[in-house]
Design a protein around this nucleic acid. Structure first.
Length: 362
DNA sequence: TCTGGGGTCCTCTAGCCG
DNA sequence: TCTGCGGCTAGAGGACCC
């Protein structure tokens, strides 16, 4: 979906159409208590000012003081997301969900041509949601994703076997899925600037640079190879909840209170979805942006809020809190489906809401 | 000076055990 | 009894993606 969050916002704020619009964080960075946030999506009008996803909202404001800023509102985006995914599933059951605004669809067995299928799907999504999307068609997921980036917004791109050298190899190496900021920087240090440059290096040499597993994937990808199937069903591996504070927290009790609240939030989500976990972990990010994690595993699976909170506090005890903290998070992993977990959890949630004893370090 | 929140997967290390 | 080694797991951190 094109500039998804921003496009959904424009459906209910048509007065902002044509204006630079930035979606991110809790809203307007001009308000001090909303200032800590990053850009989730920006309209093409805002991108013209150099605003990009992941950029601090304050930086976006600096680049475009006249921009409009709106908070991220998942409750508005989720139903639209469900609608376009439903249309895709009706097109082919070989559907892979890849997050709120993109998905893969295996259309190789359909009777119509790829172009006809894509055109029909775009039209159906457009009339159902009022939004545009960009479609990439190719022999595998990697190339389909890269194709979808070639003609944005509102485009259709078809990549065929012979198009690799002409259309993919000239692209910057960063445009290859799996090459993020770190890998991109390392490759650039060795004068590997384009996908074609990467395709030409020795796999052995690349393995020395970035590790064998990553190298095998990237070298294949640069040469257009991708054997990954379209995955139609997936069980979650972990659930987490984290929060960045409006102001850094130095007080242990305050930190424990925030962590306890996140445990309650997370336990409620696990209960609602019927999962229990075997490992609890916490995450702290200090004022200097250094992140630290601590994990604790149980013998069995639990979704009990008191157990989660006790474990989270045990983890917290193991951290040297010598600096103020800007973010705290809790995560439950090694998930299993838990039949009937909801009932037990309801009771423990009720008891957790009252006065809490904080069982943590000195 | 600034840097979200939700995830996944991988690597490395240390400890345990046969 | 000591040592080495491979397999396994837990824990910590890193990279990446939407």
């Amino acid at each position: 979906m094109d500039a998804f969050f921003a496009s959904v916002e424009l459906l209910r704020r048509p007065d902002l159409r044509g204006e630079p619009l930035v979606i991110g964080g809790r809203g307007d960075p001009r308000e001090a208590h909303h200032a800590r946030g990053v850009v989730a999506t920006a309209t093409y009008e805002a991108r013209a000012f150099g605003i990009r996803s992941g950029m601090p909202l304050r930086e976006a404001l600096r680049r475009c003081p006249q921009a409009h800023f709106l908070p991220v509102d998942f409750s508005a985006y989720t139903p639209v997301s469900a609608r376009f995914k439903q249309l895709m599933r009706e097109c082919s059951p070989l559907f892979e969900d890849r997050g709120i605004d993109e998905a893969y669809l295996d259309i190789s067995a359909l009777p119509s041509s790829s172009l006809e299928t894509a055109t029909g799907l775009k039209r159906a999504i457009g009339s159902a949601t009022g939004l545009s999307c960009s479609v990439g068609i190719a022999p595998n997921k990697l190339l389909a994703k890269m194709a979808s980036e070639l003609d944005k917004p509102d485009g259709i791109s078809i990549l065929e076997a012979g198009d690799l050298e002409r259309r993919i190899w000239p692209l910057p190496v960063r445009s290859l899925p799996g090459v993020g900021p770190r890998t991109g920087e390392r490759l650039h240090q060795h004068s590997i600037a384009t996908v074609g440059d990467l395709a030409a290096v020795s796999p052995t040499w690349l393995a020395h640079l970035i590790g064998s597993s990553h190298a095998a994937w990237l070298h294949g990808a640069a040469n257009g190879r991708d054997e990954r199937p379209v995955v139609t069903e997936r069980e979650p591996r972990s659930r987490s909840a984290e929060r960045t504070f409006a102001e850094d927290v130095a007080d242990r009790r305050e930190l424990a209170r925030r962590l306890g609240a996140l445990c309650i939030e997370l336990a409620a989500e696990l209960a609602a979805e019927g999962y229990a976990g075997r490992t609890v972990g916490i995450k702290l990010r200090f004022a200097d942006f250094v992140t630290c994690t601590r994990d604790l595993s149980f013998a069995g699976w639990t979704a009990d809020v008191r157990t989660l909170r006790r474990a989270a506090f045990e983890c917290l005890k193991r951290v040297d809190l010598d600096r103020p903290v800007r973010l705290v998070g809790v995560r439950v992993s090694d998930l299993r489906r838990s039949a009937g977990a909801g009932d037990a959890l309801g009771e423990s949630l009720a008891s957790a809401g009252g006065n809490q004893e904080f069982d943590f370090g000195p």
